[in-house]
C-alpha cells in the first residue's frame, strides 16, 4: 500500500525529462547469481602465487629464514625422493591412514545403521556418540599409547576414533532421511526386513554416507599428522616435526605440500566413488 501511495503522488515528475513513448526494449534485469565453470583458473592462480613467491625469494624481498623459495622446497622433495625416504615416510603414513580410516568408517557405518534402525540403539548410543564426538581425539593419545602401545596401534586407534564418530552421525542422519514412502512401498509389496534395509535404506542413505567420508577423511589426515608428531620414527608428520626442529624450512614446506597432495588425492578418489555409486542422482 505504501508503495502505491508514494508512487501515485508524483508519477511523472522524476522521469518527465526522459519520458520515452516509442517502441523500445524491455529493460533486462535477470542474469547473474549463477556460476560458470572456469576450468583453467585454479591452476593459473596457483602458478601465479608460486611465481610471485619465487620472485620475492630470488630478489631477496622474502628472507630465506622466514620462508624458503618454492624451488628450495621442491629441491627438498626431490632429495627426499632420491634418498628413497619419500616412500618410507609416505608408506608409513598411508598404512596408518588407510587402516585407521577404513576400520573407523566400517564401524561407524555399522553403528550408524544400528542407531538409524533400532530404537534401543538410538536411545542407548546416540547420547554417548554426542558426548564423545566433540572430544579432540589427540587429547586421548596418551591413553591410547597405554592401551595399544607406542607403535602403530595407538596411531591407528586415534585415526579410527576420529573417523568413527562423524561416520556414525552421517550414516544415521542418512537413514533418517530416506523417503518414508519408499519404505512403505517396500512393506506394501511384502519385502523382508533385510531386503528393505539392503535395497532401500542403505542406497538411500548412501549420499549422506559419502559426504560423511569427505569430512572423516580430512579429520583422519589431521589426526595422522598429530599422532605422528607425538611419537613416530617415520611418517609425513614425523618428517615435518623433524624439519621444524632443525629449522629446515624447505623440508617443512615439502612435507606440508605432501599432505596437501594427499588430501587432494583422497578428495579426488571420493569424488570418483560418488560418481560411480550415485550415478542415479546426476
Amino acid at each position: 500500500m505504501s508503495h502505491d501511495a508514494t508512487a501515485g503522488d508524483r508519477p511523472h515528475t522524476d522521469t518527465a525529462g526522459t519520458q520515452q513513448t516509442g517502441m523500445r526494449d524491455v529493460p533486462f534485469r535477470g542474469g547473474g547469481f549463477v556460476h560458470r565453470p572456469l576450468g583453467p583458473v585454479a591452476p593459473i592462480v596457483f602458478l601465479v602465487i608460486l611465481a610471485i613467491w619465487e620472485l620475492g625469494s630470488r630478489s631477496g624481498f622474502i628472507s630465506p629464514i622466514a620462508l624458503p623459495a618454492p624451488s628450495a622446497a621442491f629441491a627438498a622433495l626431490v632429495d627426499l625422493f632420491q634418498t628413497g625416504m619419500l616412500w618410507k615416510h609416505l608408506g608409513a603414513s598411508l598404512y596408518r591412514l588407510l587402516l585407521g580410516w577404513s576400520l573407523g568408517s566400517l564401524l561407524g557405518i555399522a553403528v550408524g545403521l544400528a542407531v538409524g534402525l533400532f530404537s534401543l540403539a538410538r536411545a542407548g548410543l546416540l547420547p554417548l556418540v554426542s558426548a564423545l564426538f566433540p572430544v579432540p581425539k589427540i587429547a586421548l593419545l596418551p591413553l591410547f599409547i597405554i592401551w595399544f602401545g607406542i607403535g602403530e596401534g595407538s596411531k591407528v586407534a586415534t585415526i579410527l576414533f576420529g573417523t568413527f564418530f562423524p561416520t556414525v552421525i552421517a550414516t544415521y542422519a542418512g537413514v533418517d532421511n530416506v523417503d518414508r514412502n519408499l519404505i512403505r512401498m517396500g512393506q506394501s509389496f511384502g519385502l523382508s526386513w533385510l531386503s528393505i534395509v539392503r535395497k532401500i535404506i542403505v542406497p538411500g542413505a548412501m549420499p549422506a554416507i559419502l559426504s560423511g567420508f569427505r569430512i572423516s577423511a580430512s579429520i583422519a589426515i589431521v589426526l595422522l599428522v598429530a599422532a605422528e608428531m607425538i611419537g613416530a620414527e617415520f611418517g609425513v608428520g614425523a618428517y615435518i616435526l623433524m624439519a621444524g626442529a632443525l629449522f629446515a624450512l624447505d623440508q617443512l614446506i615439502a612435507g606440508v605440500a605432501l599432505l596437501s597432495l594427499l588430501g587432494l588425492c583422497i578428495a579426488w578418489a571420493i569424488g570418483k566413488l560418488e560418481k560411480r555409486l550415485l550415478a542415479w542422482r546426476m
Binding site: 514412502n181 535395497k199 542406497p203 542415479w280
Partner: peptide
Amino acid sequence: TYIFQDFALLP
C-alpha cells in the same frame, strides 16, 4: 497391491 500418488520408484 498399492499404486502410490508419488509413484514410489527407487531412483
